[in-house]
Each structure stands twice: as structure tokens, then as C-alpha cells.
């Protein structure tokens, strides 16, 4: 007896018709499509999002918005040219109702002044996807290749954005280290990363690793009166400006890792200073 099913059946039940459009060009050209969810490899986001916006479609784009701050800004500028279309950056802390609920609690001031944020994401897994052919495997494993936003871009961005959302501020300065500890196959992206951030008077300590699951994932806000801990096991409204701003933090982390140095953010000129 089979319990398998075709996922396309789901859409039939939901009353929707489903067509397989096997290229983004056909998707963009289709007049029947009103909105697009972009869940492609990060470095490809910009071209696809711009094409969709230019074709008059609403866009929900997975985080990170793009592979670089320049690309993210290009997306934000395009979105500003089409004010009637919605562009949303898929940051979990902005979309998840639980996070938004806790946000009200934190912003009530009950914690006092937030002194420390301790956040981590720990999961022992290879981050590699299996595929039927070597070519397909290379395509699927873009997260492990040069140009990947790495742990800070693909995972850390959600927790850093949560910190920014709750504290109402972004890091002025940041330093960090990355290392390849457990998964020394042919990848170039670190499997372990640490970041120290200066957010107003709050000091933020973030770390992510694929080498150990110990402690799982959490974000702890230690205030002078109280602390608030948010634990997450599973992944779950953000405008384009927020999407760009948090992208800057990822770029700062990348610059800190590459230059082995402290990176500051020049708020006035919106530039990284190393």
C-alpha cells in the first residue's frame, strides 16, 4: 500500500492551478502570475527580483536579499520605483508572529537597559545537498562555494535582524572570526563563525557552527532588570530598507573575517570602514 503522493495534488485541493514554468524568464513573461516568491541561490536574487519588479509583479524574496550590499541596494532602489508593488525581504523575525509578539514585550522597557545579547545557532550537519549528478550537485551546493554568504549571511542574518528589531539599532562596529573545523571537504566557506558587535551600549556575541549541535539555537537579551530568551528549533514584515541594512551587517562580518580586523560602519555615508 502506497502512502506516497504528488505534491502538485496539494495545489489542486487548494483550488489553485499549478503550471510548471521551468525558467524564470517564462515566469516573468507570464501574465497570469501576479506575485513571485524568490527562493533561488542567493547570488541570483538580484537579477530575478529586478526582472519580476520590472514586469509588474509583487515579490517575496528569501533572506538574504542579495549576495552583496550593492545588489541589495539595487533591489531596494528598484522597489522604490514601483511603489504600488510589494517587495518583502523574508526575514523570519519580521514575519513570525511569535517574534513580533515578544518584540512588544521587549520594547515595553521591562528588561531595563539591554547590556548583552548572547545568540547562537548550532547544528551538526554538513550543509551539503545530495544530487543525482555531479553537475547538479555543484549547482545545489552553492552555499558551500566561493561567493556564498556563509553562515552569517544564510543563518545569522535572521538572528542579527531580530537583535536590530528589538534594540532598534544596527551594529556600529563588528569583528569576527571564521574557521573550517568539521567539514574539510572541498568547500571554501567556514563551518564555524563568531561575531562580536557593538550596538549602541549593548554588546552582542553571536556564534554559529555546523560542527556541533550543543545548545541548539537561541537569542538571549540580558537587561539590567530581566532577561528574555528566545529559543528556536525550526526556521518559520520586512521592507526593503531593513533588508538592505541587515545585509550590511553580513558584509561587515565578511570583511572582518577576510581582513582579520575590526570593521566600522559609517552611518552618514553608509560605508564600511576597515
Amino acid at each position: 500500500m502506497s502512502t506516497t503522493y504528488d505534491r502538485r495534488d496539494f495545489f489542486k485541493t487548494a483550488g489553485a492551478t499549478l503550471a510548471l514554468l521551468l525558467s524564470e524568464r517564462r515566469l516573468v513573461e507570464s501574465s497570469a502570475v501576479e506575485a513571485v516568491v524568490v527562493a533561488t541561490p542567493t547570488p541570483t536574487h538580484k537579477d530575478i527580483v529586478l526582472a519580476c519588479l520590472n514586469a509588474g509583479k509583487h515579490v517575496y524574496c528569501e533572506a538574504p536579499l542579495a549576495g552583496s550590499v550593492g545588489d541589495a541596494r539595487a533591489i531596494a532602489e528598484a522597489a522604490a520605483r514601483f511603489p504600488k508593488q510589494v517587495l518583502q525581504a523574508g526575514l523570519q523575525g519580521r514575519a513570525n508572529a511569535l517574534y513580533r509578539h515578544v518584540s512588544r514585550f521587549v520594547k515595553s522597557g521591562v528588561l531595563g537597559e539591554v547590556a548583552l545579547v548572547n545568540a547562537q545557532w548550532s547544528k551538526k550537519e554538513s550543509w551539503r545537498r545530495a544530487a543525482p549528478t555531479p553537475e547538479r550537485e555543484r549547482e545545489l551546493n552553492w552555499r558551500l562555494a566561493d561567493g556564498s554568504p556563509g553562515l552569517m549571511g544564510e543563518i545569522g542574518i535572521h538572528q542579527i535582524d531580530l537583535v536590530a528589531q528589538y534594540l532598534g539599532a544596527y551594529p556600529n562596529a563588528l569583528t569576527g572570526f571564521g574557521s573550517l573545523v568539521a567539514w574539510r571537504d572541498d568547500r571554501s566557506v567556514p563551518d564555524t563563525a563568531v561575531c562580536l558587535m557593538d550596538v549602541g551600549r549593548t554588546r552582542v556575541n553571536y556564534r554559529a557552527t555546523l560542527a556541533s549541535s550543543f545548545g541548539n539555537a537561541y537569542t538571549v537579551f540580558q537587561g539590567s532588570n530581566f532577561l528574555q530568551s528566545i529559543r528556536t528549533n525550526t526556521p518559520p514584515n520586512c521592507n526593503e530598507d531593513l533588508g538592505v541594512r541587515v545585509q550590511t551587517v553580513v558584509s561587515m562580518a565578511e570583511a572582518a573575517y577576510r581582513n582579520k580586523a575590526l570593521v566600522r560602519f559609517d552611518e552618514k555615508n553608509r560605508k564600511l570602514l576597515t
Partner: peptide, 15 residues
């Protein structure tokens, strides 16, 4: 309304 895979499991259990 249940997810398609789960509905298949329910049918299997009924059988």
C-alpha cells in the same frame, strides 16, 4: 483539510 501526505496515511490506516 489535511496535508496530502497525511491524508494518504489516514487512508492507509483506514484500509
Amino acid at each position: 483539510v489535511v496535508e496530502a501526505g497525511l491524508f494518504g496515511l489516514l487512508e492507509c490506516c483506514q484500509a
